[in-house]
Design a protein around this nucleic acid. Structure first.
Length: 95
DNA sequence: AGCCTTTGACCAGCG
DNA sequence: TCGCTGGTCAAAGGC
């Protein structure tokens, strides 16, 4: 479970036949936070894709000391796809 | 005590 | 109308 600075609660996991990948559903632990996160990976592949949905409506919980950039850092991935592993996975939005 | 994780079933939209 | 998929919720157990 990759730590992005926020805590998530897994509320489901299903195998998407459409893409032949396992998808895990995570939700922000904060109730006032409508942010959601979906993690999918292929069975037998080290790289996984993290899809952030929604946006956090509260500052960072307890990471990063002296800067709310963490909030933007997590939001910058909003509705985007974050790739882990990089094994053949391209890096979108190379800012 | 609180928190987290896992599985099954249900529901809705589509062709 | 049916079957299918994708997405979400709930309960229990362990540390």
């Amino acid at each position: 479970m990759p730590e992005d600075g926020y805590q998530w609660k897994k509320y489901g996991q299903k195998f998407i036949k459409n893409i032949q990948k396992i998808r895990s559903y995570f939700r922000c632990r904060d109730k006032r936070c409508g942010a959601k996160k979906k993690v999918e990976w292929q069975p037998g592949d080290p790289n996984l894709r993290v899809v952030y949905d929604g946006a956090h409506q509260h500052g960072s919980p307890s990471s990063n000391g002296g800067g709310q950039d963490a909030d933007g850092a997590a939001n910058r991935y909003d509705l985007s796809t974050q790739y882990f592993g990089g094994a053949g996975a391209p890096t979108p939005q190379t800012q």
